[in-house]
Amino acid sequence: MYAKNVTVRNPSGLHARPASELVARAKQFRSKILLHRPDSQVEGNAKSIIILLSMGIHQGETVELMAEGPDEREAVEDLAALIEGGFGEI
């Protein structure tokens, strides 16, 4: 397993277009990818739009990105860069 904390920087948070982008990108990896909100038990599948929407992650929140599988490190690093890069919104 490989994990990393990332902070959501774009204004709209992980909703709408950024959520779709994240899901599409996550699906390119074979590993199981999870988003985990610290201080809560909530853990969600990053390849599911419905899960991302129902997590409602806002700008400024820090979440843990975890992956397990053959390309776990690559997946986490790639998605972390996407999230930290603000999805082109900033």
């Binding site: 779709s20 899901v23 599948n45 390849k47 599911s48 739009i49 419905i50 899960i51």
Partner: peptide, 13 residues
């Protein structure tokens, strides 16, 4: 409709 496709193919649902 793009958003509908995403929901339709959502792996969790």
């Amino acid at each position: 409709f793009g958003a509908h496709l995403e929901l339709l193919t959502d792996e969790v649902m």
